[in-house]
Amino acid sequence: MNDSAPLEAPAVVTNPSAPSTDRKEAHAIEVRHLSRWFPGVHAVRDVSFTVERGQVIGFVGANGAGKTTTMRILATLDHPTSGEAHVCGHNVVTHPAEVRRCIGWMPDHYGTYSHMTVLEYLDFFARALGYKGNERIERIAEVMEFTDLTGLADRLIDALSKGMGQRLCLGRALLHDPEVLILDEPAAGLDPKARVELKHLIRILAQEGKTVFISSHILSELGEMCDSLLFINQGRIIHHGSAESLRRGNAATSVVEVQLAGGLGRLAEWAALSPHVTFREATKSGGRIEIDSVEPEVIASVLRRMVNEGLPVTDFHLQERKLEDAFIEILGEIEAAGMPIVS
């Protein structure tokens, strides 16, 4: 057996022959009470969440929070100590082969070979995935086109830059056209240009309806790409929700920054006379107002009233928390409450 495997016995599956869930109805990813411990370390603790098909989910957490362990279990590369995980309706422990067919895995450190070109690397994995003849050639060509690697086909892998390497790794993960992509820190260590390119590729994949489960430290990037974010801390899920809801937080009011042509003008006066609106503070060319609702319709009606009443509005935007701030705030709440918050 794998000599890197930890000593603890994994969860013994007592009914492996039980049929997998109906694949069409199944969630892309379903995790129930998943735990994994290594000698002296409880890496994942009672984690439960679901990811619907076609969603892009960001998996956020500090180093050692349990992201990679969870992702490795989902990719059938590790086994849970207890709990269950299903990908495309297949149990990762009892039906690993089926799970592997429907996932594309991209680890945080992509593996390279010496004395091997980009083309040979893709060819090796295409062969290993069972592609033969023209189908193999077509898959390689398609992936090279998508990741824009055609021009690098004859370059030795160990001479690739980090960004090129990540594109190659993504290409390898896409060779068998998987339904679910599990990407562990794909943007780590990339320069801004390579990061933009990678983000672009992931956006295209998301538009094509693929489920993307992606971990990253760069929250702002995840916020742009993801339908929802999953925060993990010390092996526990502490938040699961959209980036919007995170930015908004639990507030019942909205803060709007308003800029007026010619400075503050009569914004404070207008706010004092308007229902649902409170003037908060003045800024260099306007001020901040607080609207006692988070409903978009109410916020829009406030803007409409401002314009109708002759205020020279040049900028009107909701002030949102940065995702990083939201994450830190959630961590603070957990520390204060002494227990995990799961939404």
Partner: peptide, 11 residues
């Protein structure tokens, strides 16, 4: 080289 995982995910 961190490639064993990648190979084991193939057939």
């Amino acid at each position: 080289l961190n490639t064993m995982d990648l190979i084991q995910l193939t057939r």
